[in-house]
Computed example of a mutant assay.
Amino acid sequence: MARKKINNAAEAPLRPVEPAPHWSSLREGDRVSVRLSTGFETGGRVSAVTPDRTVVWVDLDGGRGRTLLHCSDGVEILPA
């Protein structure tokens, strides 16, 4: 059976996502280190966390702004 090529994200199959276990301990105001899969790392402070712990907002250090991180983004958020 040939595989169908997926041309855009809307055609991609949905998959369940779960946050990393340590995401459950993140709280508003916590200092964290944010590591992206591309090798970029920066510090920041948690500004909000959704009740299911799948989404975390982080105010990045150095005036880089506020960013929303989802557990399926391939990013690590570790206590600093």
Results as ranks from 00 to 15, higher is better:
Trp57Gly: 04
Val56Glu: 00
Asp30Lys: 00
Ser25Met: 12
Val75Arg: 02
Leu69Ile: 15
Ser33Ile: 07
Gly63Pro: 00
Ser25Gly: 09
Arg3Ala: 10
Ser72Lys: 07
Pro21Ser: 10
Arg53Val: 01
Gly39Ile: 00
Asp30His: 11
Gly44Arg: 04
Val46Glu: 02
Gly65Ile: 02
Arg3Lys: 15
Val56Cys: 07
Ala48Pro: 03
Glu41His: 05
Arg53Thr: 05
Arg27Gln: 14
Ala2Ser: 14
Arg35Phe: 03
Ser37Lys: 05
Cys71Ile: 02
Pro79Thr: 01
Pro19Phe: 00
Trp23Arg: 02
Arg27Glu: 12
Val34Met: 06
Gly65Pro: 09
His70Tyr: 10
Ser37Asp: 08
Asn8Arg: 09
Ile6Asp: 04
Pro13Gly: 02
Trp23Tyr: 04
Arg45Cys: 12
Val56Trp: 00
Gly65Ala: 09
Asn8Ile: 04
Leu60Ser: 07
Pro21Ala: 13
Gly62Trp: 06
Leu78Val: 13
Ala10Asn: 14
Ser72Arg: 09
His70Ala: 00
Asp61Cys: 05
Lys5Leu: 15
Asp61Gln: 07
Leu60Thr: 05
Asp73Ser: 07
Gly62Asn: 11
Val75Ser: 03
Arg27Ser: 10
Arg3Val: 12
Glu28Thr: 11
Asp73Cys: 02
Ser37Gln: 08
Arg15Trp: 09
Arg27Pro: 01
His70Phe: 08
Gly74Leu: 02
Trp23Ala: 02
Pro19Cys: 08
His22Gly: 07
Val46Thr: 06
Asn7Arg: 13
Thr50His: 03
Arg53Pro: 00
Asp73Asn: 08
Lys5Asp: 12
Arg15Thr: 14
Trp57Thr: 10
Val55Cys: 08
Leu78Ile: 14
Arg66Glu: 15
Arg66Trp: 11
Val56Lys: 01
Ala20Met: 13
Asn7Leu: 15
Glu11Trp: 08
Pro16Gly: 13
Lys4Ile: 13
Val58Glu: 01
Arg66Gly: 15
Ser24Thr: 10
Leu26Val: 03
Thr42Gly: 06
Val34Gly: 02
Glu28Gly: 02
Trp23Cys: 00
Thr54Asn: 08
Gly44Lys: 03
Ser33Pro: 04
Ala80Arg: 12
Lys5Val: 14
Asp73Lys: 01
Arg27Gly: 05
Gly29Met: 08
Gly43Gln: 05
Ser33Gly: 14
Leu69Val: 12
Gly43Phe: 02
Ser37Glu: 09
Pro21Phe: 04
His22Leu: 12
Gly44Leu: 06
Leu78Ala: 12
Asp59Ala: 13
Trp57Lys: 10
Ser24Tyr: 11
Phe40Ile: 01
Glu11Ala: 09
Glu28Val: 13
Val55Tyr: 00
Leu78Lys: 10
Gly44Cys: 03
